[in-house]
Amino acid sequence: MVKQVRQISGVSCTVQLSKRILSDRIVAGTVRIHGPNFFWLKRRSQLDNARKMSRQTARIADPKKVNSELFTLTYGALVSQLVRDYESVDDVNKHLERIGYNIGIRLIEDFLARTNFPRCHDMRDAADKIQQAFKLYLGLSPGISNWSNGNEEFSLTFESTPFAEFVELPDSCSNLKYGNILPGVVRGACEMVQMEVQSWIIQDTLKGDNITELRIRFIKKLEDAIPAGED
């Protein structure tokens, strides 16, 4: 009589026994054949249990989401700190733009290193790349719309205000441009690739508009100038 006991990792273990001593041998066989494997299985299930338990005590959402939330919350804390520090909201707007500019001039290097993009040849090309940068760094995919006649001005549209997920503006801050870091980033990044652009927010969901719209206008191409102090 052939009894197939169990198949473990591709090796089938068969025990051939006479009927009379079946019960003893099976027990012995089971122990011998399955000994280490059974132990292994038990260990595995123990591990699984432990893992399940630790998951219960601390369930962390997926890291990508945590990252964007961390950025959102940090930015929020910064804005509220600036509102507390500076008396006029206009100052806060200006500083946010400035911070954005500083970030932009660093961010563009990482972007070019990651993507190996060649130089933009026109604004449509640039718009595409800016859109892809938003996808890469913030996981957002803004729409591109409202081109001006000469193809020198366009809008990026977001369904909500980027990194304003947990934000509500109090009435005293009605002039605050919450997302004003974004125009700064775009301006700084474009300046590093010899494009002077102007960028500003014209619609904002925080202010009750349906979408957030970031307008970008091409001003001029920056020429390589001779460094100061050289002839």
Binding site: K64, N67, S68, F71, L78, I99, N102, L107, R114, Y137
Partner: peptide
Amino acid sequence: PFSGAEELPLELLHGE
């Protein structure tokens, strides 16, 4: 999925 690109904005903001 984890290219590290999404960590950069926070790092730059912190630097700022």
